[in-house]
Nucleic acid binder design. Structure first.
Lengths: 211, 211
DNA sequence: AGCGGTGTGTTTACGCTGTAAACTACGGGC
DNA sequence: GCCCGTAGTTTACAGCGTAAACACACCGCT
């Protein structure tokens, strides 16, 4: 019986495990990802995962890998760099927003793993092709990456306030901080896509002004 | 004896606890902060902390509060907004770099606690005084906050590579990703303060171009 | 056909975590 | 002098990451 079911189920693999881990993170948040929970998701006993990953950190790296693999970065072309720049930013932003619970993972990117390096390298190639010199391209990459991730974090962090505002139900206690009272309705009224576009415009214009 | 020592030591308090927690985080990293460890730091039994904070999340909020209290934001003046903007950015950046292990805490800022609201409100006041309308001020705040935090995260995350580069000892295995091989020396040669200034210039210029 | 090795998953165990509950001891008001 | 509230301690529990020992199915060899 149990032998049969063991025999029947699909075998574990690095990618199956990483994908399952991402599914848990997406569905239940980063904290919900434990070895035992991951095992359960795969119909297996937790410790089984250690046959394929040395430790939990490696699994998180695997999740990052899965995420960055979804990031298709087109090869350099003769499209004006501003358009390319905007498109890459939007693509990355969309990925982050599709996996809000995984943002801290991508924010901490140590560039160590090949997945990150590959993505970074592809963007660098784009920028170089657009005429940026190596150092400017790197600085630009750092700037835009920081910005996109930062905004996504801001957005996710402030989401509760926006939705509370939309429902017209701020949970503010009557004696709340006056700054907060002033800030929150503005925050609630804020359209994050607009805000992102605002900052993206600012950065693109700033880069244009530099040349 | 033990009664005496109990009697002698300074009593616990919210701020004493939060400060001790920050000290642990600074010295040993976020993961090292546990209730028992925090108790030990205070010469007390872990569980004692629960008399002053309802749970660990509240302690982390307390740490954020302590950190943001260090952020002195000058009142509005007639200094050109570009200078104010640059100074605020540098001040915040300096705070983050002085507490690198706490960056994830500040990155996740949900604006919920009064401390965050106070700081955000003070910056908003500055921007308003400089002639930004309310929505632009908020978007600008979001942009610069995202950028400063993002760069700090980038910087901390890539620090190992820079220091390895400085020592001329990349730990890259011979068969490393070609992108990585190309990227890493550039990264190692990068001066983060320069990179920060680069992006800050870009943003300031972009904001100027907007008006 | 039988046998040993290898590789995958399971079991058990250890020290750690956050925190609920019960307990102890001190200080101030009646 | 008692009595209560407050601060700190003790004990306990479920869950964590992971090391180690174990069980079992498969493969190639003879």
């Amino acid at each position: 019986m149990s032998a049969l079911s063991t025999h029947t189920r699909a075998p574990l693999s690095r990618s199956r495990i990483a994908t399952a881990a991402l599914a848990i993170v997406d569905r239940e948040g980063l904290d919900a990802l434990s070895m035992r929970r991951l095992g359960a998701e795969l119909g297996v006993e937790g410790m089984a995962v250690y046959r394929h990953f040395p430790n939990k950190a490696a699994i998180l790296a695997g999740v990052v890998e899965v995420l960055l693999a979804k990031l298709v970065i087109p090869p350099p072309s003769d499209v004006p760099w501003q358009a390319v720049f905007r498109e890459l930013s939007h693509t990355y932003r969309a990925l982050l927003l599709r996996h809000p619970h995984a943002i801290p993972l991508l924010a901490a990117l140590p560039l160590s793993d090949p997945a990150t390096a590959r993505a970074a390298g592809a963007v660098m190639a784009q920028l170089r092709a657009a005429g940026f010199d190596a150092q400017s391209a790197l600085k630009t990459l750092a700037t835009i990456t920081s910005y996109v991730i930062g905004v996504a974090q801001w957005e996710v962090g402030t989401a509760p306030y926006r939705s509370a505002g939309a429902r017209g139900s701020f949970v503010l206690p009557p004696a709340a901080d006056p700054y907060l009272v002033e800030l929150l309705p503005q925050l609630a009224a804020d359209d994050c896509d607009d805000t992102f576009e605002f900052g993206l415009d600012v950065i693109v214009r700033g880069l244009e002004a530099r040349s």
